[in-house]
């Protein structure tokens, strides 16, 4: 194991975050805080409680998940796409680095950034709404699993993307709608029955449901289903990344 290479990639990627602190951390935290103000305080004060939890409190796990998903995909996809775009990928490909080590460095850094961001948003939420986490272990488990899984997914998008437009297409046209429709701002039980069935095909529903359960013990689907879907998506992403490095898809000529 070339652990020095993993460390080098990880620190290199993290350094980019600290260099672009406004864009990487401050901006998403500010955006999420605005959601708290608008949906939690302004509109939320006129909405009745959902399953015994005030609306402002109810949306906290969904908003954290919204940031985790978008930031994980964005960080990881940019992390691998930019070396491809600038040509510096030659160095990674010519170094004695296995696919596992490269992924560990890039995805590890992207996931770390998302987790840090998630925790900052959680701390920020405490300033706006009363909050309690009933199952901290499961909260952290879902946080880490989701960050890692979607960082892997972002890595795949970054490898696949041939230009900056393609880099943005999946996050904007797939991830964002799935997240907004995945129960970030509501329980799917509030939907008409037919749409509840449709919503169950949205994998993000399971992530948000499991994460919300770890806070308030209220969920749209069972904890087992949430965990199973998350692990299943993680396995698919890992298999895809393995295939990418084995074949050199869009990395090697």
């Amino acid at each position: 194991m070339n652990h020095r290479a993993v460390r080098a990639i990880y620190l290199f990627e993290m350094a980019r975050t600290w260099r672009t602190l406004l864009q990487s951390v401050v901006s998403p935290v500010l955006s999420t805080s605005l959601y708290f103000v608008v949906f939690g305080a302004a509109i939320g004060s006129r909405i009745t409680q959902i399953e015994g939890v005030s609306y402002g409190t109810f949306i906290v796990p969904g908003l954290i998940m919204l940031s985790i998903l978008t930031q994980s995909v964005s960080n990881a996809s940019f992390g691998i796409y930019f070396p491809k775009f600038s040509g510096t990928i030659y160095e990674l490909l010519s170094a004695p680095v296995s696919f596992f080590e490269a992924v560990l460095g890039y995805v590890g850094a992207a996931a770390s950034k998302s987790i840090i961001l998630g925790l900052i948003i959680l701390a920020t939420a405490w300033l706006f709404v009363p909050l309690h986490v009933m199952h901290p272990f499961w909260m952290l488990t879902f946080l880490v699993l989701t960050a890692v899984t979607f960082s892997l997914f972002g890595f795949i998008i970054g490898v696949w993307a041939g230009n900056f437009e393609q880099l943005q297409v999946i996050p904007l046209l797939v991830i964002a709608p799935l997240t907004f429709l995945g129960g970030s701002f509501y329980s799917i039980n509030m939907l008409p029955e037919a749409w509840q069935t449709v919503a169950l095909f949205n994998p993000v529903v399971y992530l948000i449901s499991g994460f919300r359960w770890s806070f308030y013990e209220i969920s749209d689907v069972s904890l087992g289903a949430s965990l199973g879907i998350t692990l299943g998506f993680l396995a698919i992403c890992m298999a895809t990344v393995w295939w990418i490095f084995k074949t050199g898809y869009r990395l090697k000529n």
Partner: peptide, 24 residues
């Protein structure tokens, strides 16, 4: 390589040190 592929925003020291780390 033939083309000037470099990390534009890194310092000289950081990018050269990164290369050494990458090679273990």
């Amino acid at each position: 390589p033939q083309e000037l592929h470099t990390d534009a925003f890194e310092t000289v020291w950081a990018t050269v040190s990164y290369s050494r780390g990458l090679f273990g």
